[in-house]
Design a protein around this nucleic acid. Sequence first.
DNA 1: AGACAAACGGAACATCGCTCCATTATCATA
DNA 2: TATGATAATGGAGCGATGTTCCGTTTGTCT
Lengths: 188, 188
Amino acid sequence: MSNEGRSKRADARRNEKTLLAAAAAVFVTSGVDAPVRDIAAKAGVGMGTIYRHFPTRADLIIAVYRHQVDACAEAGPALLADSESPHTALRKWINLFVDFLVTKHGLAEVLRSDKGGFDTLHTYFLDRLVPVCAELLDAAAAAGEIRSDLTALQLMRGVGNLCIGADDPRYDARQLVDVLIAGLRRSR
Amino acid sequence: MSNEGRSKRADARRNEKTLLAAAAAVFVTSGVDAPVRDIAAKAGVGMGTIYRHFPTRADLIIAVYRHQVDACAEAGPALLADSESPHTALRKWINLFVDFLVTKHGLAEVLRSDKGGFDTLHTYFLDRLVPVCAELLDAAAAAGEIRSDLTALQLMRGVGNLCIGADDPRYDARQLVDVLIAGLRRSR
DNA sequence: AGACAAACGGAACATCGCTCCATTATCATA
DNA sequence: TATGATAATGGAGCGATGTTCCGTTTGTCT
């Protein structure tokens, strides 16, 4: 899907690039659930073209943010190597993830749910990031720094949920995630 | 609004009861964002009737769950008096709130947002519960048991967010809330 | 150049929230 | 009890949005 190779026609490849740029632009102004028509208009293409390239909205969102998600995933092992303790590495990595989420209006909202056909999006994020999170989590648990009764999947979903509604200035998602991570510390 | 007294016509009062019952029934099967048409059909009335009695969906949801929210709010002071420590009272009260939220499909989802006209719902829950939460939070802070840099509003929103998607059996909202509350404990 | 398939565009259909007002039912009053 | 004022109803209709479908256009290959 979203083939970047030479296998498609030239106009198809061109339109895919145009669509990604248009979608990225619309996402920052109207959020990730902007009307399909708006994205099509911004790109100057018909709606059929969007659906041909990105059958579901999830596919489009994934394509737009793939690089950033990958960067976040790849930062995990590096942090683990560079930080003085696994718990610190975990905290830094989670902060990276939170920074990414809160700057994408509405992304955390649609990331949450298996509802509405956003299955693919949910699955992609989890497949890509849960293993990284698990590595950091295991390291911290092995070092005896945190409780070990929480799975990486649980933690990721919890953090994702806490980032919902971060647009509201009265709600500080970062602070709540801090509290959550503090709660991981092994008691006593 | 939603006058229960003798001031309205008999058929109006009758329809209001019918609507509340129908809405409650539909909410458990289809979630709180079930189509308005479905609720009207279930109640055997026209859609205009719904909008006359409950101008926004939030009004309907509030009317359906008002008693349970009130019960939760009133349980706060009682828990504070009965528990051995304010922190324990806070934990128990939060658990009460979480139990309420996770059993109402989709309620946490719509509770989150100022988006989509659910303002009233958000406001009602917060007006009713934040003062109670603040009392418990202040007591625990005064006892030196928890960090004091978190507002009751922040905490309530965080807990509400963590309850989103609790339908999924792989996601245990209660456990994550436990971790969050544990994170409130004053370090060292 | 010509032909063929890939890609396109946008009209058309479905769903849902919400409004509007002609019609119906209730109730105070004579 | 009959009646008229008016409270309340119901559902067609409008606008917004997601999604499909197919006649038309355009690239590419020979």
